[in-house]
Nucleic acid binder design. Structure first.
Lengths: 342, 342
DNA sequence: TTGTATGCGTTATCAA
DNA sequence: TTGATAACGCATACAA
């Protein structure tokens, strides 16, 4: 086992000083042509690479960004990681991934862990529990310490920072409007609990769409699910107790459970009931019938988040501080789970 | 914005030396009760946390482990990340995630990036291109530099390091045996190209199962897919050109494409053709019909990998070097896509 | 009981 | 043109 080459070792080997080696490798004109070439040749031959940690300490920059996501079952979040990773790597950054498991404590712990020098900034989607508690001191603290923060998907208004979201209200409206367009009149919604920002917003969009089409809103047609775990059973119970011709679900898992339940109870999708989901993932794509969804472009969200964060990181500190909210367009991917009933 | 607290600042504030502060915070008996308490109280009040980077430089340990995976579309890999992350966090480690996108160059680049001090060791599943080229110098280099390496899933014999795999041959055999048990006689296999270790091994298992049941092996019943991209079309063409009553696919995507194609051509699954997949992910679980699969326990693979790596990292260097290969048991999850034809 | 000096690997400043 | 020195934040052997 040969330990890593350092400036010191090169210096010793070539019988020059450390600073000479450092300068030569950075092509400083201070160093004479001959010595410079000699040093560079040596370094190249033995494949010298500067130590990132030392650089981090010196520059007070780690060139890594931390991303904390609530859960990994949702394909959406993994595509966001993918987008972040892509942009980050292009810009010479590494990506530290942490999972909060939707737990407030784990989220705080993760942030503390990374805030002590491991990362230059954060990209984060809030844990369910955090939104429920409404306790965001850890976010504010990071910002106060000069660590930029980008929130995506599950964000909160009260924190001033960059944000990347989709227009959840408009997306939901689009979904419900589509159901109305294909002839649905009694449309159920399967949502998450209200304290999750996206759940609330999508519910708003649902209501607005109904309103605009002069359809009465019925509280009983909304199911709010707390835990992914029990979702299947809850959906089954819910749907067996209400007569509907359309279902709007806030994620693919719920949508698929809905289809399953409906089929098992003898209804046909889309002939009897149309079902639309949110977040266009593998599940929607591969499912039979192919699931009509509002596409959420996780990849793009990740890319935008990373760009935003890196921009802030590389900005000269004198520039004025202001925050952007980027809204990534949603699309409507029509597949086989919704169909005109005429 | 208040910059981070350092030992230096505390020392200055309390008018003691840096080392006194350092020792006091580490509960050294060298320091007098009174000063110690004073310093600790101060540190606690202002929430002092040592700088990870400085610690890394000092200890020549980063307490982070790097994981490089080939692609993130497969739910399997994300569950592995999840498992790694879990164990790592429990042991006080961070996780750096990189994607190789199945590209040899990106894999090498990622490793070089992380090897310069960013990580203490690697957990890695080989890129397709890497296996095709058979060029593993970057792995050997990392090992030579004293960075432990754990390979999982897509591994290679010629590199001496810890490995976490499943018994692919046995898993495949199990799958095919199940198809035989439910009465299938002409069983197609949808695999990956041979240079991907798991593709080769699972093909072996397929053959062995047939042999043991005195069924003739037919080369034409095997489809080898190179790119995920074109898989759907290839599978469609393949299945429309051969009459089978069972299909064994090496991942869920292929399995689902098979079901889709079969159904579109008027065949019923499982009544006419039984289909079994590999890797028990969301797709298999949620699909209709529920997909029978060989379960691969990505979470466990991740956990074992992390444990193995950390064990090596924390071992005293004098201990003898030896490598383990952990084989994680596969299971058979029977759902609705396979059914007895009696 | 406390403080000084040194080093981890770099780079930047300044002196030779 | 080159080299010595200090600094980034921390820990520790050793000196006071």
């Amino acid at each position: 086992m040969k330990p890593k080459l350092t400036l010191k070792k090169i210096a010793k080997e070539l019988d020059v000083s450390i600073s000479t080696v450092s300068k030569a490798l950075r092509d400083s004109p201070e160093i004479g042509e001959e010595t410079r070439e000699k040093i560079k040749a040596f370094a190249k031959h033995y494949n010298y690479k500067p130590n990132n940690i030392a650089l981090s300490l010196k520059n007070r920059k780690t060139k890594t960004i931390g991303i904390i996501i609530p859960e990994i079952v949702h394909h959406f979040f993994t595509t966001v990681i993918s987008g972040v990773e892509k942009v980050a790597n292009e810009m010479g950054y590494n990506v530290l991934v942490c999972l909060s498991d939707n737990s407030f404590d784990k989220e705080v712990l993760n942030m503390e862990m990374l805030a002590n020098g491991s990362t230059d900034g954060f990209i984060l989607s809030l844990a369910k529990e955090t939104m429920q508690k409404g306790d965001y001191h850890h976010l504010q603290e990071a910002i106060n310490q000069g660590m930029p923060l980008v929130l995506f998907d599950r964000v909160v208004d009260s924190i001033a920072c960059d944000k990347v979201i989709i227009d959840d209200v408009a997306g939901a409206k689009k979904a419900v409007q589509h159901l109305l367009d294909v002839g649905c009149r009694r449309i159920a919604m399967i949502s998450t609990v209200d304290y999750v920002s996206v759940g609330k917003l999508r519910t708003k969009g649902y209501k607005e769409a109904l309103e605009e089409n002069d359809i009465e809103f019925d509280e009983n047609l909304i199911l709010k699910i707390e835990e992914m775990e029990d979702s299947e059973k809850e959906i089954e119970e819910f749907l067996s107790n209400c007569e509907v011709d359309g279902v709007f679900a806030v994620n693919e898992h719920f949508a698929i459970s809905a289809v399953k339940t409906l089929q098992e109870s003898g209804k046909k999708v889309p002939q009897d009931v149309s079902v639309i989901g949110f977040t266009d993932g593998e599940l929607s794509k591969r499912f039979i019938p192919g699931l009509t969804t509002v596409s959420q472009h996780g990849m793009r969200i990740g890319e935008e988040s990373a760009r935003l964060l890196i921009e802030k990181l590389e900005r000269t500190p004198t520039e004025e501080d202001y925050y952007k909210t980027i809204i990534v367009e949603t699309g409507l991917v029509v597949r086989d789970s919704t169909k005109s009933k005429k």
